Amino acid sequence: MKTRIHIQNLKCGGCANTIIKNLTQLNAISNVEVDVEDSVVSFEMESEKDLEQVKTTLKKIGYPEDGEANSLGSKAKSYVSCAIGKITT
C-alpha cells in the first residue's frame, strides 16, 4: 500500500538520496520517493507494521516525522546525512 509521511529537516537532494538509500534497504519497502519542496516521503509497504520501521529509520538518520520532537541531535544527524547524500551521488 502507498504511504506518505511528512518529515522534518529535509533540505536538499543530498537529504533525499540518504533517505532513499536507507529506506530501500528495509524489507517490505519499495518505490521510495522524496519531495524536497513539500518535505514528504512516499513509499510502498506491505503492512502497517512496516510503517513503524520506516518512522524509526527516518528518526535515526535525522528526519523525524512532522509533529514529533525535533531535537538538536536530530538536526545534527540530518546535516551529516545530507552531506553523505551529496557525496554519494
Rank of each mutant, 00 (worst) to 15 (best):
K86R: 12
E33P: 03
Y79I: 15
S78C: 04
M45D: 15
T18V: 05
I29V: 15
T56S: 09
I5K: 12
N17F: 02
L10Q: 05
G14D: 12
V41A: 02
K2V: 06
G67A: 06
N27H: 10
K2C: 06
N17Y: 01
V40G: 03
D38C: 03
V40K: 07
L10G: 04
E65T: 11
N70T: 05
G13L: 06
I5A: 10
T3F: 09
K75W: 00
I61Y: 09
Y63L: 01
A28D: 14
I84K: 14
L26N: 00
E46P: 05
N70P: 08
G73F: 00
T18N: 11
H6A: 09
T88R: 09
V32S: 08
V54I: 06
L23A: 12
L58G: 12
C15P: 04
V32R: 09
G13A: 06
I19F: 01
L72H: 07
T57D: 07
Q53E: 14
M45W: 07
Q53S: 14
Q53Y: 06
G73P: 04
S39K: 02
L26Y: 00
A28S: 12
M1G: 15
V41M: 02
V41L: 00
K77N: 11
N17G: 07
A16G: 01
T57R: 11
V34H: 07
G67C: 03
V54W: 01
N27T: 13
K49W: 03
K60Q: 14
I84W: 08
I20M: 10
L26V: 03
V80W: 01
K11D: 12
N31I: 07
F43Y: 07
E65M: 05
D66F: 03
Q8D: 15
N31A: 12
V40D: 04
K2S: 08
V34W: 05
S81I: 00
A16P: 01
V32F: 02
S47V: 07
L10T: 04
S47I: 09
K75G: 04
C15H: 03
V54S: 09
K59Q: 07
A69W: 00
E48I: 09
K59T: 13
K11G: 07
I87W: 00
M1A: 14
S42H: 05
D66G: 02
L23E: 12
E52T: 15
P64M: 06
K86D: 14
G62S: 05
V80A: 10
T56N: 07
I84T: 11
V32H: 06
Q25E: 14
L72A: 14
I87A: 10
F43C: 09
I84V: 13
Q8G: 09
D50W: 01
I61W: 06
L58D: 08
D38G: 03
T88M: 10
T3L: 11
E68Q: 12
L26A: 05
T56M: 02
A83W: 07
E68I: 03
M45C: 15
L51E: 13
M45E: 15
S81C: 04
Q25N: 15
G73W: 00
E33A: 15
V36L: 03
K2W: 00
T89A: 11
K55G: 05
C15K: 03
